[in-house]
């Protein structure tokens, strides 16, 4: 469990990134911070492993005030995945994955063996083990980044827009994989994104942030969709533009299907069970 208690952050240049932020991030759940740039979401994330120190308030992990912990030790206990993967370009894939275990003093052979196993966990072929990062595609690099973050078997996984730099098809794939991983591993994941659809897809708990680290709403995707707390949230999730209001449209002429359309009448899908829908029983 990660607890933010009245946390604020004012940078040296006077920018107030986060203001009096209080929240509990439950264990084994995925919490997604979502907001546009300047909303302080990355700052909040980076305060958890002390890449940034708060100027006010405190952060507890499992009841322990992290300000009292050595930042270097703390970071070795927490997995971290960045947007650009941030792999060490001069080390092979296995050695990249083995970084943290090696720092923790695990013998090289053992760390490498464990790293090879992790390749499978994140859906990479073992033949990639001896490649260098610049010989991988963007999606593969990102998977290696996830494997590295998992290598020390941390309870907490921080993910800073990890899928922001890959193309939409690969992104969708990686998102599904992350959900699968999370079902298997049950980590406490803190995920940052500016993409509300990604947030709804991955989150158990969504935190919508406004400029300056002010919380607009906290809740499950369902709660936020059904009861946007304020106009800002409604507009952010696209509810005001009719994107989230869906209607059924029965089309007798076109094979008798029921379409699901949004507020503008644009189709978003086909109602399951309607006669000609893919996968529906033909009778």
């Amino acid at each position: 469990m990660i607890e933010f208690q009245g946390v604020s952050k004012v940078f040296d240049d006077g920018t107030r990134a986060v203001d009096d932020f209080t929240l509990v991030l439950p264990s084994h759940k995925t919490t997604v911070f979502v907001g546009s740039s300047g909303s302080g979401k990355t700052t909040l994330l980076r305060m958890i492993n002390r890449m940034v120190d708060p100027t006010g308030g405190r952060i507890l992990i499992d009841g322990e005030d992290i300000a009292r912990l050595d930042p270097v030790r703390l970071r070795r206990r927490i997995g971290y995945v960045l947007q650009a993967a941030g792999l060490l370009p001069h080390r092979t894939v296995v050695d990249n994955i083995a970084t943290v275990p090696r720092l923790n003093g695990v013998p090289r052979a053992q760390a490498r063996a464990a790293a090879r196993e992790l390749l499978g966990t994140v859906g990479l072929e073992e033949s990639l083990a001896m490649r260098y990062p610049n010989q991988l595609s963007g999606g593969q690099q990102q998977r290696v980044g996830v494997a590295r973050a998992l290598a020390a078997d941390p309870n907490v996984l921080l993910m800073d827009e990890p899928f922001g730099a890959v193309d939409p098809i690969v992104r969708a794939e990686l998102q599904q994989e992350l959900n699968r991983l999370q079902r298997e591993l049950g980590k406490t994941i803190v995920f940052v994104t500016h993409d509300i659809d990604e947030a709804f897809l991955l989150a158990d708990q969504v935190v919508i942030l406004k400029t300056g680290g002010v919380v607009a709403q906290v809740g499950t995707p369902g709660q936020i969709l059904s009861e946007p707390a304020e106009d800002f949230v409604a507009s952010f999730i696209g509810a005001d533009a009719g994107k989230r209001q869906l209607y059924l449209q029965h089309r007798q002429g076109d094979g008798d299907v029921t379409l699901v359309v949004d507020g503008d009448g644009r189709p978003t899908g086909v109602l399951a069970g309607s006669p000609a829908a893919p996968g529906a029983d033909p009778r």
Binding site: T42, R46, M51, V52, P71
Partner: peptide, 11 residues
């Protein structure tokens, strides 16, 4: 990005 020794100036 937090590259100072004190690592406290990141954003």
């Amino acid at each position: 990005g937090g590259a100072s020794w004190s690592s406290s100036s990141a954003r």
